[in-house]
């Protein structure tokens, strides 16, 4: 059985699944729209949580938050289910397919057979859609892939019951109600306000303040932990920026695309200008990543390189702070 489902490759898995699932129900929203309305732009620093042998950085909110927030702001209802028993999880999924409901799943990346080796690590908040079952295999629309794939029952069970941080526990979700008239303007405004609030939050681990904390820590790592560990931490910072395993593409650029679309919908030219501004900031993040990559290549580089990196990151944080303040006023 194969449901009528259009697969679109996207830059980021969660927006992608959301956008593809809603399109299937007749609501056409681009990936940047979902990302912007769901306040996908974020920064968090969790120095004590070790991921892949490095402190936790993330340029995105908690898994599931983007779709949940976007749905709430658009008046869409999503049903979410988790199962302690894998067999029940499979039955529920099959029941959905029989009722013609393409279904989103949270899965672990490590055992996704179709991923290249360097993408496989124990990251459990990837998203994909199951849109059918044929010859005992589930048909998979993974928004990171440019084509659809399939997984056997056993393979799918493995990724749905991946263990470690943020275990999916068979988590599946699908929209159950979509209002006939969606108030896009209101949803966009709410999304933007929330993003500004988060990024300017007066808390050291979130937003611009967290960026500054990381920036100030870079020279400290070099001093206390040595070059090798510092370089690995910085590598993790790049990998998170580029969201390996959940689609590349800097989030700042997706947000730029969102602001450009929003400028048209809200008839607000200021947003168009701010779109250019966040694009320029995105370019700086990329330059920052290139500078980090350069540090790997000549490992014995001069010791003040970490101070330089720290300065560039502080500079980006300043620009972002100014950006969110302007954005807040523009709405």
């Amino acid at each position: 059985m194969e449901l009528n489902f259009e697969h679109h490759q996207t830059a980021h898995c969660e927006n992608g699944v959301a956008s593809n699932l809603l399109l299937n129900k007749g609501l056409k929203l681009s990936e940047p729209m979902i990302f912007g309305i769901g306040s996908g732009l974020f920064f968090v620093y969790l120095p004590f949580l070790k991921v892949n042998f490095a402190p936790g950085f993330s340029y995105r909110p908690m898994p599931g938050a983007i779709f949940s927030k976007a749905a709430k702001r658009l008046g869409i209802k999503i049903k979410r289910e988790k199962f302690s028993n894998p067999q029940e999880a499979q039955k529920a999924l099959e029941r959905n397919l029989e009722q013609n409901i393409p279904t989103g799943l949270q899965v672990g990346v490590f055992n996704l057979t179709y991923f290249p080796e360097e993408y496989k690590f124990h990251f459990n908040a990837h998203n994909l859609v199951v849109y059918g079952k044929e010859n005992g295999k589930f048909l998979i629309s993974d928004p990171v892939m440019d084509y659809t794939t399939s997984l056997t029952e056993a393979e799918l069970e493995k990724v749905r019951y991946a263990k470690g941080a943020l275990p999916p526990k068979g988590h599946m979700y699908y929209p159950t109600y979509i209002p006939e008239n969606v108030n896009l303007e209101e949803a966009i405004k709410k999304g933007i306000k929330d993003t500004c609030k988060n990024m300017l939050a007066p808390v050291p681990i979130i937003g611009v303040k967290a960026m500054r904390w990381v920036a100030r820590n870079i020279p400290k790592w070099a001093e206390k932990k040595g070059t090798k560990i510092t370089n690995h931490y910085l590598g993790q910072l790049i990998r998170m920026q580029e969201e390996i395993g959940t689609g590349g593409g800097g989030f700042r650029f997706i947000y730029g695309a969102f602001l450009q679309e929003a400028a048209v919908i809200l008839k607000n030219d200021e947003l168009k200008e701010l779109s250019k501004e966040i694009t320029a900031i995105g370019d700086l993040w990329r330059d920052f990543a290139v500078d980090i990559a350069r540090v790997y290549k000549n490992r014995n580089s001069k010791s003040n390189i970490y101070n330089e990196l720290s300065k560039s990151m502080l500079h980006i944080a300043d620009l972002e702070e100014a950006f969110y303040k302007k954005l807040r006023k523009a709405i």
């Binding site: 440019d146 790049i238 580029e242 390996i244 650029f253 980090i292 990559a293």
Partner: peptide, 19 residues
């Protein structure tokens, strides 16, 4: 803004290789 397909870029590749 528009979308494009990319095979990845240098800095990301370096980070992956390091990892």
């Amino acid at each position: 803004y528009t979308t494009a397909n990319s095979i990845g870029w240098e800095a990301k590749k370096a980070a992956l290789d390091e990892s």
